[in-house]
Simulated scan of single mutants.
Amino acid sequence: MQTEIKPKVLNRLSRIEGQVRGLSRMVEEDRYCIDVLTQLQAVRAALSRVEGQVLKDHMDHCVMGAIAGDDLADRKAKASELIELLGRASR
């Protein structure tokens, strides 16, 4: 992961961690189901944004590095990783 991205990702993950702890409290306090579901959607959306940021960083740094490099095996490995990742995401 590129150095300038890492602190941003860690910061977002810390906030998401706080949101999840808040969700636990909401369930313990028997909060209204719609409120809990709304917060669950917010956590899912936040995780999706982090996932997108990490994927973009991977594309910009790791994949583009492999494409620009001379190692054919590395290029094939990076392409296979992305195909497998996208396959898991579509399930």
Rank of each mutant, 00 (worst) to 15 (best):
K6L: 15
R88D: 03
L37T: 03
S90C: 12
M59P: 09
Y32K: 00
L10I: 14
R21F: 07
R12E: 10
A66N: 01
L86K: 12
G87K: 00
A79V: 15
G87E: 10
G18I: 06
A66W: 09
A66F: 05
E81T: 08
K8F: 03
M64Q: 14
V27T: 01
V36A: 08
E81A: 08
A77N: 09
G87S: 06
M59I: 11
V27C: 07
A89I: 14
A42V: 11
M1V: 06
R75A: 12
R75D: 03
D70Q: 11
L23D: 00
V27Q: 03
V36D: 07
S24T: 15
L13S: 07
K78M: 12
E81R: 06
Q41H: 03
Q39R: 11
D35A: 08
R44E: 14
D35F: 02
R91P: 05
G65C: 03
M59H: 06
G22H: 04
A45F: 06
G69W: 02
Q39G: 08
P7F: 01
E28H: 15
S80A: 10
C33D: 01
R25H: 14
V27L: 12
R75W: 10
K76H: 10
D57K: 04
V36S: 02
V43T: 10
M1G: 15
M26R: 09
G87R: 07
K8A: 03
D70W: 07
A45S: 10
V50I: 04
K56E: 07
E28D: 15
Q19P: 11
V54S: 02
A42P: 04
V27E: 12
V63I: 00
Q19W: 00
V54P: 02
Q41N: 09
